[in-house]
Design a binder for these strands. Structure first.
Lengths: 287, 287
DNA sequence: TCGCGCCGGCGCG
DNA sequence: TCGCGCCGGCGCG
């Protein structure tokens, strides 16, 4: 018998005393309750699936409060994965024409080429988009119903202008040496697409939130592959795939995170996409 | 109590009648025997770990026979992962100086950048390297001991010249939508490094062997990220990350695979790294 | 001890 | 029905 993970979260989360609990503590508590009341054995796979979702839900319930309180015009949307939303579908059709065309050219080759990646967990957008959507009053509710959280991305799909999309966030309950690479493809494709969609009007951020060890952090320090110098060329400006990789365990740490996020975005806008890593210009590899 | 997966393979594999069995059939048989003789419950994680290794071992036992029989100067080496061999360490130190230097520059930045990926399962090399190593007589043995198979990469480490490394192979017992992206990072990094190491003397291949569905195959059709046109530029020559993605289930199919492999390599050498996808030159995206 | 890379069994739309 | 993205529990060096 399947664990109804959304229903269980909705039932158990409000009964917890959240004081001093990390997001992972919350996941553990919910898991304990579900295991205790289950009348049959639960497979590891079922728990894995549930823990991932419960972590996302515990995170976004707190992030909703935190981002409204700490920032002026940002909001966070859970993206879900109903038969693969492609992340670029959140943009207005007009602004992604150029990227769509590239995708089409590749797809219509005699031997088709696809550019695919998994969907990021969350997107940070301009709050205006949600505000202007009369169908959603999620901003007025301090703890909105799960259904609204899970379906908000449908409201913003095809609606965002490039400057209204600030960045993507990936949340990881845990890492493994093999599983951690999925994120690098996501970040590389997102930032590659943003060159076509944002037209360098502003940088797109990609952040990872979760616990990681030194080895994970080395992997997450990776350069964006398409900004790497090809053999024999000078290094010009190498960007990173992941902008920040932090372990945010609770609401207080989230408040700080959003404030920093808003500041960085303002700086980006002022500097008009000047890369912080111009230092690389001086590294001549053409020997 | 841990399943001793190497010992179990060595004990059970020779007792099987392999006629008509696919590699995955062999894995299933070994699993059945191990489960039946176990006196305690075995975790899913333990089985997962073992199935991966058994599949690799069933594959290489047959590939050893097949590649010697079907080709003249190729050989296949299992790479293992003892505290992360970096794949480029199979090359002679002198030939990877340029790449090592790039890695060092990145690592010594004030905010270090690492280029990392997981180690491919197998590498296809020139048979000469193994022949010339007096310490190994693996080529004379039709079914070499596991220990020799598992440690051969130590023999060839730091010894290969660029032209002696033909390509890497990844083997997958099964795919999942999240797990399938690891391979794309591996292929992208391997081919990026090969631009520094091989100096375009010849292309490095990257193949996937395993069962995949249409969606997996779309993902595996991905372009090499660093060969993609950046917004506003003409498309010149887009390469793929994965050269072939095939489901090889048994020895007969392997024989065909190796023959094709050898042919393609000969063609590559004759054409001196001319990309087969020059057709892209005519796609002007600069609108 | 820990980093490696392994992979199945989900709940859901 | 199937594609999605979830993640723990390994055996080994």
């Amino acid at each position: 018998m399947a664990i109804r993970k959304n229903d269980e979260f909705e039932a158990i989360y409000p009964t917890l005393n959240l004081d001093g609990l990390t997001f992972l503590d919350i996941v553990d508590r919910i898991e304990q309750v579900v295991i205790q009341k289950s009348t049959q054995a639960i497979t590891q796979g079922s728990l894995n699936n549930c823990r991932g979702t419960w972590n996302e839900l515990a995170f976004i319930m707190e992030a909703h409060r935190s981002i409204l309180q700490s920032t002026e015009n940002l909001y966070l949307v859970k993206m879900g994965s109903e038969t693969s939303i492609k992340f670029w579908e959140i943009y207005q059709k007009e602004s992604r024409q150029k990227y769509d065309l590239l995708i089409d050219i590749f797809k219509n080759k005699q031997e088709p080429i696809f550019i695919r990646c998994s969907t990021p967990d969350f997107v940070v957008i301009s709050r205006d988009i949600v505000r202007e959507s009369s169908s959603s009053n999620i901003l007025q509710n301090s703890s909105p119903p799960l259904k609204e959280i899970n379906e908000l991305y449908k409201v913003i799909k095809n609606k965002c202008l490039p400057y209204q999309v600030k960045g993507f966030i990936s949340l990881k309950t845990s890492n493994r040496p093999d599983r951690r690479y999925q994120i690098l493809v996501e970040a590389n494709v997102a930032k590659f697409a943003s060159r076509y969609i944002h037209e360098s009007a502003h940088r797109l951020r990609y952040d990872i939130i979760g616990e990681s060890n030194p080895s994970d952090r080395e992997v997450f320090s990776a350069p964006l592959i398409f900004t790497l110098p090809r053999s024999g060329n000078n290094i010009t400006s190498v960007e990173r795939a992941i902008d920040s990789e932090v372990n945010i365990k609770s609401g207080q740490e989230l408040d700080e995170y959003w404030k920093r996020y808003e500041e960085i975005i303002k700086l980006d806008r002022e500097e008009k996409a000047v890369s912080p890593e111009e230092e690389f210009v001086n590294d001549n590899l053409d020997f």
